[in-house]
Nucleic acid binder design. Structure first.
Length: 562
RNA sequence: UGGCUCAUGGUGUAACGGUAGCACUACAGAUUUUGGUUCUGUCUGUUAAGGUUCGAAUCCUUAUGAGCCAACCA
């Protein structure tokens, strides 16, 4: 077992949390046991930032032969809902992790209440009748110490009595709180007699109306960790000031000493990550829902066609450290292309069609040509494609007056039709306004793919679909959510920064016939266009595809430069 | 103007007092029936100033910059 760890050590450098864990194991702390937890509040859907945390916590448990719990931090009944609980569990499982235990902070409400009573009995907590405004005023500021509440020195008996009455619903909501008795002059604002319990006559999604007092984060989180005997409680940087209180509670309650460690949360450019903002996008209908493929939510990315493997790989590559960071979207895209390149079935679809008539090809004739399903995967086999006299190709693949680096079709320039024949353009047909409507071409019969004796070497290979056999489908093209890299650096409201072209719908794309019959979690590469996946809106008579990500596009870069 | 935390190429992340490495991006070339993939190469970095040391990205001091903390949110 130690050998395993040593070997791993030599292979990959450890992040600072792994170093702590390995040191703890080496010192025999908790008999070498590693137990982590992923503790979401069920008040929204999980996003890619949570994925980083999930991969970290579950990954650590896997690496060190430990356990990882999923714990819903459901201590605030007014914001939480079972809809979120369900989606969170689904997302964790989809990412490929099965929690060793599924717990809820609300499971511990009785225990937490006992803890609170214990603190009161130890003279470490008191009931405060001050108003929220008064409490805020007495808190002081970072540069000025706070002042003691007039209720701070109530007797244990009185506190016990008052707290019982709070629990029994004898006081109005907001009229009293339970506070820890620590230090109103602490340089750490969190330690200035933090509120532990508040009165809320709210229906809780799991405990119903049993409780009218609810613990706050600091009275619930570390205590829950301790109850579950969590060894390494990993959270994000903004909880750093809470660690002192986390330890204070555990010390004074004399319970299992879980330890908190903080790492920097994930930020991605060209998107927003805060739950508040994501919720706003959903509620104000800027997007179709939490699973809109433009959302950085796990459900949105899944719908868009991201694979769990790609997301896990991404989570590994971004690393774990304490430095604030903004990850390039290009890394995420790299990860998904890397995975999809290996597994996506190649197929052909034309999004912006231009008719090609092969004038020397017999009318009414259909040939079924063989094509590979995935050149990266020899096991993937081949399939047949229908070829005929009339085809669709991409508008972009023809230019009447091409620039020098344009390799595709133009008058006089040859082009290879993927898995079919080489053609040349003989005549450009235009409408009254001068728009190109049709290309009349000839093909070279001896240039058939696989048995080409023509000796011709066209510079480009084009994708195409037989007009007679093409299936109509809708294709949704997604782009970055925001126009700017970092919304936080922009004075404008983030909703003014939304990319108006984040969704472009191609109502009538022509798809090769094999794409008429697809199943939800399929992944395709539409050759030369990108990776696509069937959307949930797909109906038998009308397939709908989402573009997961484009292919890298060298030509687009050249064209952009001019 | 209090406390805590952080600072390495464009973006991330290693190097634990001894050759600043890796990945993404960008750029260039080779291969290619996807301007994809694959392969090769190139550019770019230790926030600053002092100090300790034979030797500092690493230790110390100061400065600078960034983040977090004053919900009965988590």
């Amino acid at each position: 077992m130690t050998t395993d760890i040593k070997e791993t050590t030599e292979k990959a450098p450890l992040n600072f949390i792994e170093e702590i864990i390995e040191k703890d194991i080496a010192e025999g702390k908790h008999d070498g046991r590693v137990h982590t937890r992923f503790p979401p509040e069920p008040n929204g859907y999980l996003h890619i930032g949570h994925a980083k945390s999930i991969c970290l916590n579950f990954g650590l448990a896997q690496k060190y032969g430990g356990k990882c719990n999923l714990r819903f931090d459901d201590t605030n009944p007014v914001t939480e809902d079972t809809e979120y609980v369900d989606s969170i569990l689904g997302d964790v499982r989809w990412l490929g992790f099965e929690p060793d235990n599924i717990f809820y902070a609300s499971d511990y409400f009785d225990k937490l209440y006992e803890f609170a009573v214990d603190l009161i009995k130890k003279g470490k907590a008191y009931v405060d009748d001050s108003t929220p405004d008064e409490i805020a005023a007495m808190k002081g500021t970072p540069t000025r110490p706070g002042t003691d509440s007039p209720y701070r020195n109530r007797s244990v008996e009185e506190n016990l009595d008052l707290f019982t009455k709070m629990k029994n619903g004898e006081f109005k909501e907001g009229s009293r709180v339970l506070r820890a008795k620590i230090d109103m002059a602490s340089p750490n604002m969190i330690m200035r007699d933090p509120v532990l319990y508040r009165i809320k006559f709210a229906h809780h999604h799991r405990t119903g109306d049993k409780w009218c007092i609810y613990p706050l984060y600091d009275m619930a989180h570390g205590q829950s960790d301790s109850i579950e005997k969590i060894t390494h409680s990993i959270c994000t940087l903004e909880f750093m000031p809470h660690r002192e209180l986390y330890d204070w509670c555990i010390d004074n309650l004399e319970i299992f000493p879980s330890k908190q460690y903080e790492f920097a949360r994930l930020n991605l450019n060209y998107t927003v990550m805060s739950k508040r903002k994501l919720k706003q996008l959903v509620e104000e209908k800027y997007v179709s829902g939490w699973d809109d493929p433009r959302m950085p939510t796990i459900s949105g990315m899944r719908r868009r066609g991201y694979t769990a493997a790609a997301i896990r790989n991404f989570a590994t590559r971004v690393g774990i450290a304490k430095r604030e960071n903004v990850i390039d979207l290009s890394l995420l895209e790299f990860c998904v292309r890397e995975d999809l390149n290996k597994i996506a079935t190649r197929s052909m679809a034309v999004l912006d069609p231009l008719k090609v008539v092969i004038t020397n090809y017999p009318e009414g004739q259909t040939e079924w040509l063989e094509t590979e399903n995935n050149p990266e995967d020899p096991e993937s086999g081949t399939r047949k494609l229908p070829f005929g006299r009339e085809l669709w190709i991409e508008q972009d693949d023809f230019m009447e007056n091409p620039p020098k680096k344009f390799f595709r079709l133009s008058p006089g320039q040859l082009g290879r039709l993927k898995s079919a024949y080489i053609i040349q353009v003989d005549e450009v047909v235009k409408d009254a306004s001068g728009e190109v409507t049709e290309l009349h071409c000839t093909y070279f019969p001896e240039s058939k793919s696989g048995e080409d004796t023509s000796g011709l070497k066209p510079k480009a290979t084009l994708h195409w679909v037989s007009a007679e056999h093409a299936v109509a489908g809708e294709v949704r093209l997604y782009d970055r959510l925001l126009m700017v890299e970092n919304a936080a650096d922009d004075p404008r409201d983030f909703k003014e920064l939304l990319n108006p072209d984040s969704l472009v719908v191609v109502k009538n794309a022509w798809l090769e016939p094999s794409l008429a019959d697809v199943t939800p979690n399929d992944h395709f590469q539409f050759i030369r266009l990108g990776y696509f996946t069937p959307d949930a809106d797909t109906k038998p008579e009308k397939p709908v595809f989402n573009r997961t990500v484009t292919l890298r596009d060298a030509w687009a870069k050249i064209a952009k430069k001019g």
